[in-house]
Design a protein around this nucleic acid. Structure first.
Length: 578
DNA sequence: CATCCTTTGAAGCTC
DNA sequence: GAGCTTCAAAGGATG
């Protein structure tokens, strides 16, 4: 979708970066606005959605909003993470990371306690350390970790950050933080995050610096050895491996060579063999752990022999057989939405009583669409960075490598079944989850919000106030999630071509498949740009959905949206692209 | 216990 | 090149 690579390295200082550095006040205001907007949406939704559950979503949301820790600490590590994230966000807001040098990557500094890439890997869930409650108080390693010789003093941070954070307010940039995890507490129990992070080697508190970030941040060879890498996963911590690569598991005999200069220098200077934890799996021989790497033992597909990229096979010096068995599962880099989801999940969970991820994800999907383009741009940028990093760490890695590693979803398409049959038989969840969503403040369905669908982030950034026309011109899959009562089970008529409709019945988790979503590709850039509308869209809802981010962009988009549908009869249209 | 569900986006695959 | 599929996270639900 969004082509983020366009900018290359020079886009690091993209215009959107300022988004991350709003003033604290602004953030607060924004949050408040969101809250109120969400309440409004709740009300709106309550009228739009049949009340199957008498949940006072608004009240719940409000309470949740005010509850720092709605759930027991043991209930969710995410909470803790959120706390930290929020703390960090505020730090950012406070301008701590306003350093002109690294305007775009303040978050790289943050040691997130989640390990996104090892969720199912060598590390057990418990291993996914999250900062404990001390985190929010900034009396944590993170604070130390955030210490920047060139940055304001730690005290500055402490003063800046409210002691009590909302559990669900997470900085959007948190996801990247997730790369770094327990590495910040080397040798110390994750649950007891010492105020300072001692360098495993020197024993002195380490001071991370943005400059450590490669390739975006010039590394100071002299300093590298003393400070932890902002990208936590790059820094092998005791018993921790974010992007761990098992011996021989890496496709490059000399992985460091695959990295850029700064990266390799970082690694080489920082990690001497003896200080490297000996992990049968997960730890790269170079000592470069990567969260994307998952122990092969996990999620091992019966036949994973040919999952690694050819390059891996060819370049791996060791026995191919063994390697195949031990080959780490390098996860895909998270996309923008995944990053967003990861970050916001806890918040949604806190606001709602929902716990089902499917339902949560629906809400998140709507919220995602309700985000302003700027907000989304942040995540797209983050995702882009992640991809870049990922590609740097695993030059030979390909998404194909992971193909087939997952258990194949049951492909129960019924070729001969009618669309209706298919939709009914395969969509038990359609209604199941939707009712719950009203419990939360998710923007009234995503109608219209999809207008925010990632246009190419870079493009979006380039033209912040891009008129709706721009959107319609771009390939914008518009995923419209309808309300339960409005659901017509027309997902088979989604924007996807007929072929997709049948084949994606269940095997694909595409947004347009197997659920009451309606994808409306509008103005596809391709040859068939015929908008497809599975069902009439209540424009009222459309408006409401856009209340959340009442940005000019939304309005413009809305205009476009209306215009589009006014010109296009609202009817069930199957695309006969062929 | 394994898989499903659900979301969006990226990338791979197929035609 | 368009369209479809797979995977990424997450965790309750389900078989």
């Amino acid at each position: 979708m969004p082509q983020l690579n366009g900018g290359g390295g020079d886009d690091l200082g993209a215009n959107d970066e300022m988004i991350s550095f709003k003033d604290e006040g602004e953030q607060e205001e924004k949050i408040s606005e969101n809250v109120s907007a969400e309440r409004d949406l709740d009300d709106l939704k309550s009228s739009l959605v049949n009340e199957s559950e008498n949940n006072s979503s608004s009240s719940d949301s409000e309470q949740a909003e005010r509850r720092p820790q709605p759930r027991p600490d043991l209930d969710s590590y995410e909470k803790t993470r959120d706390y930290f994230s929020e703390a960090f966000r505020r730090q950012q807001d406070g301008g701590f990371f306003k350093s002109p040098h690294y305007p775009g990557y303040p978050f790289f500094m943050i040691p997130d306690l989640t390990n996104p890439y090892i969720s199912n890997g060598a590390l057990s869930p418990s291993a996914r350390t999250y900062l404990q409650m001390k985190w929010p108080l900034l009396d944590v390693p993170g604070a130390a970790g955030l210490k920047d010789s060139r940055s304001p003093t730690p005290g500055h941070l402490s003063n800046k950050v409210p002691v009590v954070q909302h559990a669900h307010h997470v900085h959007p940039l948190t996801p990247l933080i997730t790369y770094s995890n327990e590495h910040f507490s080397p040798g110390t129990p994750p649950s007891h995050l010492s105020p300072e992070i001692l360098d495993p080697k020197t024993g002195i508190p380490r001071t991370p610096h943005p400059s450590e970030l490669s390739p975006y941040y010039p590394l100071s060879p002299g300093a590298v050895g003393q400070i932890p890498h902002p990208l936590g996963w790059l820094v092998p911590q005791q018993g921790q491996h974010m992007y761990s690569i098992p011996p021989g598991g890496f496709r490059h005999p000399y992985p460091t060579l695959a990295m850029n200069a700064s990266m390799s220098s970082l690694v080489s200077s920082r990690f001497s063999p003896h200080m490297m934890p000996h992990h049968p799996h997960g730890m790269h021989q170079t000592g470069i752990p990567h969260p994307a790497i998952v122990s092969p033992a996990i999620k091992q597909e019966p036949n994973t022999h040919d999952h690694m990229s050819p390059s891996m096979h060819s370049k791996s010096p060791g026995p191919a057989k063994k390697e195949e068995d031990k080959k780490p599962h390098i996860k895909k880099p998270l996309n923008a939405f995944m990053l967003y989801m990861k970050e916001m999940r806890a918040k949604v969970v806190a606001e709602c009583t929902l716990k089902e991820s499917a339902a949560i994800n629906q809400i998140l999907g709507r919220r995602w669409h309700s985000l302003s383009r700027e907000e989304q741009a942040k995540y797209y940028e983050l995702a882009r960075k992640e991809r870049q990093l990922h590609s740097q760490l695993y030059p030979g890695w390909s998404a194909r490598d992971n193909y087939g590693k997952r258990k194949k979803r049951k492909r129960d398409n019924k070729p001969d079944s009618t669309p209706e049959d298919f939709s009914i038989s395969n969509k038990k969840q359609c209604v199941q989850y939707l009712p719950s969503e009203k419990m939360c403040d998710s923007p009234a369905s995503s109608h219209g919000s999809m207008l925010d669908s990632p246009a190419t982030p870079s493009a979006a950034l380039a033209s912040p106030a891009a008129p709706a026309a721009t959107h319609s011109e771009q390939a914008q899959p518009l995923s419209l999630t309808t309300k339960p009562e409005g659901r017509l089970h027309h997902h088979f008529l989604t924007g996807k071509p007929s072929g997709s409709a049948s084949s994606s019945s269940s095997s694909s988790s595409s947004s347009s498949s197997s659920h009451p979503s309606i994808s409306i590709p509008i103005g596809t850039s391709g040859s068939h740009s015929t908008p497809i509308l599975s069902r009439p869209i209540p424009f009222s809802s459309l408006h409401h959905s856009m209340l959340s981010p009442p940005s000019p962009f939304h309005q413009a988009a809305l205009h476009s949206h209306h215009a589009l549908f006014q010109s296009q009869p609202l009817s069930l249209v199957t695309k006969s692209s062929d």
